[in-house]
Simulated scan of single mutants.
Amino acid sequence: MALGATLIKVLNKKYALSQMVEQKFKGYDLAFKTDEEGNAILLFIGQKDETGNVRGERYARRIVKDKEGVLVKDHWDFKGKAT
């Protein structure tokens, strides 16, 4: 599953700092970890199993800023199956 524009829009919002956030999105269960600035950096998307873990796919976000803090690079990489 490729990350679509509407999902990217949800992930680009600011959330609680250094937390694991769980939500529903178009029939999928999302679980994502945030960094110290509230940006989503690790995403699990799929269906929750009986233990509460999301089974599906895993993505990691790469955020690169220059010395002045200006955003240089921001993209999501597919990291494989989430089991």
Rank of each mutant, 00 (worst) to 15 (best):
Q23D: 08
V64M: 01
N12S: 11
A16C: 08
G4H: 00
V21S: 04
L43G: 06
G69L: 03
N39H: 10
D66W: 06
A5Y: 08
G27A: 02
L30T: 01
G46Y: 05
R55W: 09
Q23S: 11
A5M: 14
G27V: 03
L11H: 00
L7F: 03
V70K: 12
T6N: 14
V70H: 08
T83R: 11
R58N: 10
G27L: 11
K73C: 07
D29Q: 08
V54L: 02
L3T: 02
Y59K: 02
K13L: 10
K33F: 14
L3P: 00
N12E: 06
T51N: 13
R58S: 07
A31M: 10
L3I: 04
I41P: 00
T34R: 06
F78D: 07
H75V: 13
K33I: 15
K81M: 09
K81N: 09
A40G: 00
A2G: 11
G38H: 04
L11F: 04
M1V: 08
E22F: 06
G56E: 05
L42H: 12
A5G: 06
Q47N: 07
V64D: 09
G46D: 02
Y28Q: 11
G4V: 04
T34S: 01
N12Q: 07
K67I: 11
Q23I: 09
L3R: 02
K26T: 12
F25L: 09
L11R: 02
D77M: 14
R61H: 05
T83V: 10
D29F: 01
K14I: 06
A60T: 13
K81Q: 13
V54T: 06
L30G: 00
G80M: 01
R62S: 09
R62G: 06
D66Q: 03
F44Y: 15
T6D: 15
Q47A: 07
G46H: 04
F44P: 02
